[in-house]
Amino acid sequence: MSPQRGFGPPPGGMPPGMEKPRRKMGIGKFTDIVYLLPENITFYKTKGGLIGAKTKDYDGRANLFRIFPLNLENKYISVRDKDLTELGIIEDMEIFPQEQIELMNDELNKRYFIPKITKVIEAKEEFGNYFWNVETTAGERKFSMRDLANNVIHKKNGAIVLVDVDGSRYEMEDVYKTAGKALKFLDIWL
């Protein structure tokens, strides 16, 4: 776009979850990457049902972000405090005890809520809108998509993520097996 069309940042802004003033992202004290290991961080469930973290210097609510949410879901987890200042990065969740992994996954799966489509009941194109009625791992769902070019995201493992008009996401692991009627309009984006 030419610079004369508008000023300042694009309407999209910061990634979701990171733009709230109350949880303002702090400026890290160090530019070094702090990798967190099981011996220097422990996660627990807070009384309010959220995830908390305890380190040498911090004990309170934690916010977890996937640094590579599409392709390295269980690696490179950015752990942040209640104000979203980064406490450190977990390079690989697998090195943590099972009960800690479950706590982390529980929180991450809420932040990155992407149910998997198990069956396409109905899928049709109507004037550039794509209407879907699907069964997912979270239950039955109807949604609409537009502009498949920008809303079909490819994962490296061959799965695709569909983003609907509201921004909700749905994953299809084996497209050719699951998509059914939707392949009619989906195949060009595969």
Binding site: P69, R111, R169
Partner: peptide
């Protein structure tokens, strides 16, 4: 107090 509607990546929660 301090009610907050937090946007997550593909959902939201009010707390």
């Amino acid at each position: 107090e301090d009610y907050l509607a937090e946007d997550l990546v593909s959902s939201g929660r009010i707390e």
